[in-house]
Structures are given as structure tokens and as C-alpha cells.
């Protein structure tokens, strides 16, 4: 079971809204989670480190050290809800450098109580990138043969693992500057990865990743991008 997901909450809200119209029944629980989550988010000053409006704006290189954490304005498009709730309660390192630096290490992160995590998670999952199309990438495990092909896209066609750690048959290997994909399957939504690979600068104009996705180099085909996204979001899933 990978994603309950994404638009689960948005659908839930619409569902609740329709219920209200049809039967006069409100669903305060779903809505309250979002509102209270936003209050907790504000009270804990999470926005000091996380950009909450999009698309992300580019900053000159010299100013990027002012950015203290990854943007979250598209959190509901990017994350799997189950992973998010667990992580907010007990954060574990995702990146392998101190944020925004080239220094190996992890960032200590504020942890929330179970109740707070549920509300803040609901709020974050309500923040979707409306321009991202959904149901593009198949959410299924890859067969051995297709997985082999996909891994080549990740390690040879472009050397993604030069910056991203991933679980290979030789164990977890790879560079340090990109987020680790050892738990890519639990963490990331395939549609978002597919969209991000086509339009990286929309989310990360201030990152260190090359922008892939047009004729500046031997580009991936659309099918290959979908496969890459499916591959990354199957990494670290049960059975591997």
C-alpha cells in the first residue's frame, strides 16, 4: 500500500462539501485538521524556514544561504500522507548535508506530537500544486526486467546517483548533495517526481540540481521520465 494520498484529502474535502449540500452533514473533522494545522504551523514559526507560496522564486547564488529549509507550498503534491505524518512526529535525516551547504551532516528538526502531526499533516497535504496533472505515473512495483532498465536510466543515461543516494544491489550508494532516495517509495508521489523532472525550476530554482528535460542534452523521452518517476517512488518499498 503506497499512497492513500495526495489528492485524498482534497477529494475528502470536496466529498465533505457535497455531503453537506446533499444531507446537511458537515465534516468538521477534515476541515478542522487543516485550519488547526495551519494555526500550529504559524505558532511554531515553521514559515521562517519553509517557503509557503509558489512557484518558488529564484534567488541569486550569493543569497541562497538565507534559505533555511525546503519549500513546502506544494507539499500535498509531493509527499505521501502516511510518510508525512510519521516524519513530522519523528523526523529523520532526508538530506545528507547541512541544508544548503556542502558540509556532510544532518539537520536537527523540530518534532510534533501525534495530535499536532495529524493536523499539520492535514494542512500540508491540502497544499497542492494546481498545475500538476495527476494519475500520470503508475503506482505499481516494477518487474525485475523493467526495474533493471529503469536503474540504468538512473545510473547511466544521466548519473542521478552522483548526487542522490539510492538502495542498489550493492547496498545504499551515491553522492551527498541531493535528498536521499533510500526511502523514495514511502516519501514521494510519482506524479510529482514526473512533473518535477520536467520542470525542476518551478520547485527548486535555488538548488544544485541540473535542469533536465529539453534539448540541451540527450534528453529522456517522456516514457523514460515516467519510468524514472515510477522507479524512484518504488525505492525502499517492501520487498526490495
Amino acid at each position: 500500500m503506497k499512497r492513500t494520498k495526495l489528492f485524498g484529502l482534497a477529494k475528502g474535502l470536496i466529498g465533505a462539501g457535497m455531503l453537506a449540500v446533499a444531507g446537511g452533514v458537515l465534516s468538521p473533522a477534515a476541515l478542522a485538521g487543516v485550519t488547526e494545522g495551519k494555526q500550529i504551523f504559524d505558532a511554531k514559526a515553521c514559515e521562517n524556514c519553509h517557503q509557503m507560496t509558489g512557484p518558488s522564486e529564484p534567488l541569486p547564488v550569493a543569497q541562497r544561504s538565507k534559505i533555511k529549509g525546503p519549500p513546502l507550498w506544494f507539499a500535498g503534491s509531493k509527499f505521501n500522507e502516511d510518510w508525512l505524518l510519521t516524519w513530522l512526529e519523528s523526523p529523520t535525516p532526508i538530506r545528507r548535508v547541512k541544508y544548503g551547504t556542502l558540509v556532510k551532516g544532518a539537520n536537527d528538526h523540530v518534532a510534533l506530537s501525534t495530535a499536532e502531526a495529524a493536523d499539520v499533516g492535514a494542512y500540508l497535504m491540502s497544499l497542492v500544486d494546481a498545475e500538476m496533472s495527476i494519475d500520470e505515473v503508475v503506482d505499481e512495483p516494477l518487474s525485475r526486467r523493467v526495474e533493471f532498465k529503469a536503474e540504468k536510466l538512473f545510473t547511466k543515461k544521466q548519473v542521478c546517483f552522483g548526487c542522490h543516494e539510492y538502495p542498489s544491489s550493492r547496498g545504499n550508494i551515491g553522492g551527498f548533495t541531493g535528498p536521499s532516495f533510500t526511502t523514495g517509495g514511502q516519501r514521494l508521489n510519482g506524479d510529482w517526481v514526473y512533473f518535477m523532472l520536467q520542470d525542476n525550476a518551478r520547485y527548486y530554482p535555488n538548488g544544485r540540481m541540473p535542469v533536465y528535460g529539453d534539448e540541451a542534452f540527450e534528453a529522456y523521452t517522456d516514457d523514460e521520465l515516467r519510468l524514472l518517476a515510477q522507479y524512484i517512488t518504488s525505492l525502499g518499498e517492501d520487498g526490495e
Partner: peptide, 24 residues
Amino acid sequence: DWYCAQCHGVDGTGNGINSVDELP
């Protein structure tokens, strides 16, 4: 320093933090 040093190192000698043994 932002884009290239992650692999080539700030001094350019190739000792950036992404330079791990398993790379091709």
C-alpha cells in the same frame, strides 16, 4: 562554488563531497 564544487571541489581538484568511490 554552488554548482561545480559539489563534485570538483572548491579548488577544482575533484575532491567534492559527491566524489564517492562507487561512481563510474
